[in-house]
């Protein structure tokens, strides 16, 4: 379950110590924009040690590495991969070969560190016009790619348009990226909402992204986490409906019936899949078991 991904700076011990208590399903320890150029080495080693010695409980740790153009990304991976973070987030991914390049190097480091090959996942950050247009190829570039994440701040700069709260200017890009992800059978995560004081704006933006099909949303402040978690959690009504789906399927099976309908609607595979997903989430949220298995 990854409703929220909270960005935290990679060179600030006081914040990293508390990464797991801020309510986010995942935190992104950032080696890129949140670290000044002269402290890249310090952040890399600090994040590595944090992964090695700190206990983050059930909170997933994602590490955002420096861009391919920087020359620092290999050093980042050299230090970080052996400590087995769940996910590596490369930035400004614009084409499938960016992913292939990174994946190949990760394989190399995994071999060197004697950890299972392919165990490190990649979540490319798509934040260029080229990246958006190549989104499907990026999503399919490697089996390590578990999700794509759209970043609309850099993207609007690349598009030469103004970033607005309503986000009309990035509607196409968001739609295209989520469609690419679903086509490739992976998850899609939405860009952060940058006005940390506008709670209503955040809620609307998150609801809009959920409506497009996004799995979750990145946060740039812990104060955003609760709202985003709430938006991307199934409602009690959703859970109730999902339970009902499996109940009527079980009843139909017991009676030897093939076709099943609920409230006058045929229960087909998409409905079952959705219900299963809702119950998995409900279980993860402690709202009863996913007993449909």
């Amino acid at each position: 379950m990854r409703r929220t991904m909270l960005f935290l700076p990679g060179n600030t011990p006081n914040i990293i110590i508390n990464a797991d208590v801020l309510g986010a399903d995942s935190v992104i320890l950032d080696l890129e924009d949140a670290v000044s150029p002269d402290q890249k080495d310090a952040a890399r080693i600090l994040v590595r040690n944090a992964l090695k010695y700190m206990n983050f409980g059930s909170c997933e740790i994602i590490v955002r590495i420096n861009p391919l153009s920087s020359g620092m990304w290999k050093e980042d991976l050299d230090e970080i991969i052996p400590l087995r973070p769940s996910v590596i987030m490369p930035t400004k991914v614009s084409a499938s070969y960016d992913v292939e390049h990174i994946a190949a190097y990760i394989t190399e480091v995994e071999k060197r560190a004697a950890i299972p090959e392919g165990s490190t996942q990649i979540m490319p950050l798509i934040e260029t016009a080229r990246g958006v247009e190549n989104a499907f190829h990026i999503a399919e570039a490697d089996k390590r790619v578990c999700a794509v994440f759209i970043g609309c701040e850099d993207l609007t700069a690349d598009l030469r348009c103004v970033r607005t709260k309503t986000g009309t200017e990035v509607f196409y890009a968001r739609s295209r990226v989520v469609c690419a992800a679903r086509a490739a059978g992976i998850e899609a995560y939405d860009t952060p909402f940058t006005d940390i004081n506008d709670k209503e704006g955040l809620r609307k933006d998150a609801e809009f992204a959920k409506g497009l099909g996004y799995t979750g949303k990145a946060c740039i402040s812990p104060r955003q986490v609760d709202i985003v978690n709430e938006v991307f959690s199934p409602s009690d009504a959703d859970i109730e409906y999902a339970r009902l789906v499996f109940k009527v399927i079980a009843e139909a099976k017991a009676q030897g019936r093939g076709a099943v309908s609920l409230k006058g609607k045929m229960i087909d595979k998409p409905i079952v899949d959705r219900a299963a997903f809702v119950l998995e989430m409900a279980k993860a949220l402690g709202k009863g078991g996913a007993d449909h298995e």
Binding site: I15, V21, L22, P222
Partner: peptide, 9 residues
């Protein structure tokens, strides 16, 4: 401070 804000919440 994010922890302070979390506690305030």
């Amino acid at each position: 401070d994010p922890v302070g804000l979390k506690m305030a919440d």
